[in-house]
Design a protein around this nucleic acid. Sequence first.
DNA 1: CGGATTGTTGAGGATACTCAAGTTAGGTGG
DNA 2: CCACCTAACTTGAGTATCCTCAACAATCCG
Lengths: 234, 234
Amino acid sequence: MQIDRSLVQGFDLFEGMRPDEIDDMLGQATSRRYPAGEIVFEQGSDADQFFLLLHGRLRATQVTAEGQQIVVRVINPGDLCGIARALRRNDYPATATAAADSIALVWPMSAWDGLVAAHPVLAINAMRTIGGRLQEAQTRMRELATEAVERRVAHAVLRLANQAGKREEGGVRIDFPLSKQDIAEMTGTTLHTVSRIFTAWEAEGLIEGGRQKLKVCDPHELVLIGDGLKPGRL
Amino acid sequence: MQIDRSLVQGFDLFEGMRPDEIDDMLGQATSRRYPAGEIVFEQGSDADQFFLLLHGRLRATQVTAEGQQIVVRVINPGDLCGIARALRRNDYPATATAAADSIALVWPMSAWDGLVAAHPVLAINAMRTIGGRLQEAQTRMRELATEAVERRVAHAVLRLANQAGKREEGGVRIDFPLSKQDIAEMTGTTLHTVSRIFTAWEAEGLIEGGRQKLKVCDPHELVLIGDGLKPGRL
DNA sequence: CGGATTGTTGAGGATACTCAAGTTAGGTGG
DNA sequence: CCACCTAACTTGAGTATCCTCAACAATCCG
């Protein structure tokens, strides 16, 4: 069944593509629901599909040899993921899990080469997508290498608010279930330290927390903490 | 003056391109020497050129708002760099400095769009290049987030040996001048800690150091340290 | 109403940073 | 060729940050 073009209107991936080109791509895709908690694809397994998230939120994680987990990134609606092929890989480098109920378009990986050949713009757009991801990865690398924990957590929270924030009275709510453990795994710390930091921030009214919930009330102050301009004793 | 195709034979960037396509690309490039220490391009400045390193070694660094420097990556012969355009940027996100005497091909950034349009393979190859960089960035992110300093340094040294190592009697020499400060900036630590670690490793015969010099004598043992399988008291 | 997952808080201690002096190597100019 | 000067490096002492260990509290779900 042909997927309607209006669903993907304005997605970066299709920038500069003609309507008939978009239809051609959509014609080769199927859509699929992923209830919260379900695994979309798994680290190390054969990469036979790639995905475009339409709705919901995925968490991409990696597990180290010792079993430590880290959150590589959060996948938002409009994001392409699982394009192992474009990275010259045959397996998925990370596991993607639905953090909230999600819907994604799914293509067989075998379609990738043909699509890229038929629609050169696609390669350019995919390149930019990966480029954006590279820049985010480098930013996080720099943060991990140079900043103390509290600043890293502040930056992570601000990034989340930007990517997955929803305006709400009194602040910006992170629009999907997010545990302290998740934030710890994004910032290279422990949930204990995140909990302590959040307790301190809540006392100052910067955020409002809760079980798997987070609202940013005073982003400006968080920016100050992130930039190291606020004492921020833990 | 047309640059000879044989110079770039086998570079990833030109994989799958016809000889006449390669010639077309080379025809729009000029080659340039960069003596050690010279800046190739600078963070924040207008990105009006992109580069393909033919010979030598560049160091890509970023400076944080507070003036802390980090080494983003080492650029090896065959590597493309400065392709801000492909990342949707108008300025260079990092500074590239010649770590050793180097030679690079230089294109005006204005040629990028035309080249990509004329040679669709180029977009695919550039995408793979960026994809490879993304994977390295994520690896380093994971290391910074989960590993203790000594393991990160071991991994960084092994990576350098792979990328820029030169077989030599008794080990693999890192083929360009590399200070302890550089390694500290790659691993998110201080030159003091790197110095202490190297002293310990040298005592065990794992490496041989020196002023801006490094030789890896026992890679296998370093792998063990990197994987946390060796006590490695500092 | 249990059981499980998630989160809180405290105490203690290790890793690695900062501060501080020195030492060595290499390049430069006389 | 030697003396000097600077950049790179070494090493020590003290300490802050943040992790580990531990116990408990709250929330959600079936």
